[in-house]
Design a protein around this nucleic acid. Structure first.
Length: 257
DNA sequence: ATGGTGGATGGTCCA
């Protein structure tokens, strides 16, 4: 069972790249963030032609998340409780092949100290409450997505430059740690302990060429999945294609449970 | 260089 996560920065703009990648990689589950479209505009038929069912939670212009899966998705949840209506579409969850998958697009936060930063910290606190109320860490639960946080300095190309900045600041790292303490481990760090592995590179200033990136896209799992996790890798290949997303997909592989 | 690039949109907002 392979589960992937990818911030695609508009599914309309990225459809050729995502279809091409899905066709050769063919993960069992593909979690997308920033689809930037309403549910009715999601290109479900194109993915269905590859065998994928779509569960979308979109909104106009911004945000939006989707779970694509080769087998049926049950127990679907759309949206984080406590979101104002109409809220940001930043969470979609469901159970596929016995694994509960929680797909999140955690707010970016803009700048430390801004209103958007407060919203990010509050959203993370509400995410923890949602997990407390809805799921059990004794079960196979996986949370993945664009977390918009580099958990520690190994995940930052230039820790001095980013020190205290958005995506790296202590308060957001602590708020994310509270989510982790619910019962998750960072699956990537099971297999890879060194730095220099990134999942996002700014479009500007030749950041990808210089590998000036951050590791902000994550796959975290509970204990029952931890022992089944065979590998986690970041696929930089589609970041080199024409009209790429600024994020690379992350793929986790699990042995049968 | 308080910039740079990219997406949705059709002015700016967002990342």
């Amino acid at each position: 069972m392979r589960i992937a996560t990818w911030n695609v920065n508009s599914i309309a703009a990225r459809l050729p790249v995502v279809l091409r990648w899905a066709e050769y990689e063919r993960p069992d589950v593909l979690c997308l963030q920033e689809i930037k479209c309403v549910d009715a505009k999601f290109p479900a038929a194109e993915f269905e032609a590859l065998g994928y069912a779509s569960v979308t939670h979109g909104q106009p212009t911004y945000n939006g998340v989707a779970i694509l899966a080769l087998s049926p998705v049950d127990g679907v949840v759309k949206g984080l409780p406590g979101d104002e209506e109409p809220g940001h579409s930043r969470l979609v969850a469901g159970t596929v092949g016995g694994i509960t998958v929680v797909n999140v697009y955690i707010p970016n936060g803009s700048e430390v100290g801004s209103d958007k930063y407060s919203f990010k910290l509050d959203w993370l606190a509400r995410l923890r409450m949602f997990l407390d109320e809805r799921y059990s860490a004794a079960d196979p639960v996986l949370i993945c997505g664009d977390f918009n946080v580099a958990p520690d300095d190994r995940d930052v190309h230039d820790p001095k430059l980013w020190d205290g900045k958005i995506l790296c600041s202590p308060a957001e790292r602590e708020a994310l740690e509270k989510v982790r303490e619910w019962g998750f481990e960072d699956a990537f760090r099971l297999h890879t302990t060194d730095g220099g592995h990134f999942s996002w590179w700014d479009y500007r200033a030749g950041a990808f060429r210089r590998n000036a990136g951050l590791r902000i896209d994550h796959v975290w799992v509970t204990a029952p999945l931890l022992k089944r996790c065979a590998s986690v890798r970041i696929d930089k290949e589609p970041r080199m294609w024409d009209r790429p997303s600024d994020h690379a997909p992350v793929i986790a592989e699990f042995t049968a449970g």
